[in-house]
């Protein structure tokens, strides 16, 4: 095949390129790729290792069982602490250093109970401006057990 020497060289060039590709590929593919599927197994650990912001109501109740007992008896029993108090994991980790700020009930309560025609009809809702005229909700209601004691008689 003296006449096709140039073709053999071209084929060799392609083959060399292909082998180089395979070798480099072997080296650069991240470790653990393909262990659980077509992805880098370490990504699972990376994502699981992200920090949390919300401690979860279980953590809150470990210290604040007094508040939890009040909450559990009222209408808001299903509402978790951080739904109103915001993310408190930093407080849970350093209770003395990081202190939560009490939310303003005028804003907080309205975010759920402000009347809206798309809300489920059974859900208690008010037009806050008519209902309280700008007075903070907690002037009358205890957020952890919001039903007014007088309501029982009505």
């Amino acid at each position: 095949m003296k006449e096709a020497v140039h073709l053999v060289r071209l084929a060799a060039l392609f083959a060399a390129g292909f082998v180089a590709f395979l070798v480099i590929r072997q080296m650069v593919v991240p470790a653990g790729f393909g262990k659980y599927g077509h992805f880098r197994a370490g990504a699972l650990d990376d994502i699981r290792a992200r920090p949390i912001s919300y401690a979860g109501h279980g953590t809150c109740e470990a210290c604040h069982d007094d508040q939890h007992n009040v909450l559990a008896k009222g209408k808001h029993a299903q509402v978790s602490c951080e739904a109103c108090h915001g993310p408190q994991n930093r407080h849970a980790e350093e209770p003395d250093k990081v202190k939560p700020v009490l939310p303003d009930t005028r804003v907080l309560c309205a975010s759920c109970h402000e009347s809206n025609s798309a809300k489920p009809k059974k859900f208690p809702q008010v037009v806050a401006s008519d209902h309280s005229g700008g007075e903070p909700c907690k002037s009358c209601h205890v957020p952890h057990n919001p039903k007014l004691s007088t309501e029982k008689g009505q």
Binding site: P51, I52, Y54, G56, A83, F123
Partner: peptide, 18 residues
């Protein structure tokens, strides 16, 4: 995933009041 793999619920579930 960083929460549920620790036994917590997702943030949206945690804070959903209803």
């Amino acid at each position: 995933y960083h929460r549920i793999s620790k036994g917590l619920v997702t943030a949206c579930v945690e804070v959903c009041p209803t």
